[in-house]
Nucleic acid binder design. Sequence first.
DNA 1: CAGGTAATCTGGACTTATTCCAAAACCTTC
DNA 2: GAAGGTTTTGGAATAAGTCCAGATTACCTG
Lengths: 143, 143
Amino acid sequence: MKKMSDKQGLSPDAVIDRLKAKGISATRQRVQIAELLFAKPQHLSADQVLERVNREDSTASKATIYNTLNLFARKGLVREVIVDPSKVFYDSNTSEHHHVYNLDSGVLTDIEFTSINMAELPPLPTGTTPVTVDLIIRVRESS
Amino acid sequence: MKKMSDKQGLSPDAVIDRLKAKGISATRQRVQIAELLFAKPQHLSADQVLERVNREDSTASKATIYNTLNLFARKGLVREVIVDPSKVFYDSNTSEHHHVYNLDSGVLTDIEFTSINMAELPPLPTGTTPVTVDLIIRVRESS
DNA sequence: CAGGTAATCTGGACTTATTCCAAAACCTTC
DNA sequence: GAAGGTTTTGGAATAAGTCCAGATTACCTG
Ligand SMILES: [Mn+2]
Ligand SMILES: [Mn+2]
Ligand SMILES: [Zn+2]
Ligand SMILES: [Zn+2]
């Protein structure tokens, strides 16, 4: 009987393949971080990744967490979401979508790309090409 | 002959009125910061405000710059723009508009609100009300 | 397997935007 | 001009993120 990975999400092998597909060598630390991130679409800060990776048995240092998240972002495995001036969120949902940020709770939620009807981009400053388009709706608890 | 303010922009009195209209008492430091910001629509970091306010004669401390920018933001006189994880921009253009952020140069540019055709907002998480909607297009020099 | 080389990881120091604090300066009112 | 609230201020504190130089690990070749 094949053992499935603990939680839902990709099997370790699938994670390794995903890293290798981007030309990233699959070290122990990288695989662990990737397994955590790719388990489901989610938004985690570097601190949260550090805490969760080290919660169980093995460990990864703070420097490695940052190195790895930056590497993954550069390679397109995660998306950096800049909504809170005090920390960056790393988003394992790499499909096109937008965000709702709850200023009261700090919770970041996805919004379907299609539920926002945006015309094509306006003329950008000359000599520039778009890299990312982010729509962020900040909300408050409507007590 | 009425003396106009140095650069273009509101006269000192107009600035003071604008502060008072928001219930902000017009101290020397606040007026100076407001004069700088309201001179034209622009995007400045706290550091840039500190540097420019203190470049000329009088002074304001770092703590006061932050206090004042946070106060102005809370009162709606400036808009905080979160595009760079390393610093907040304060935007003296309070009309509805969007932003282009040049990742290479760090320059932040306005985009007409109307040039983006957005349908009404999608359903937000229940129990929340929208506060701000920000569209940010990150670009690179297309060398 | 062994040795050599490059890549990766790590603890801890460092940087830096922002906030915090308690004392000083300022304003307004009697 | 004393009282009392508000604002400012220098400097300390906080915390995300980066840097660094020395291990550790991975990979390659024979
Ligand atoms: Mn980064
Ligand atoms: Mn703020
Ligand atoms: Zn997301
Ligand atoms: Zn703007």
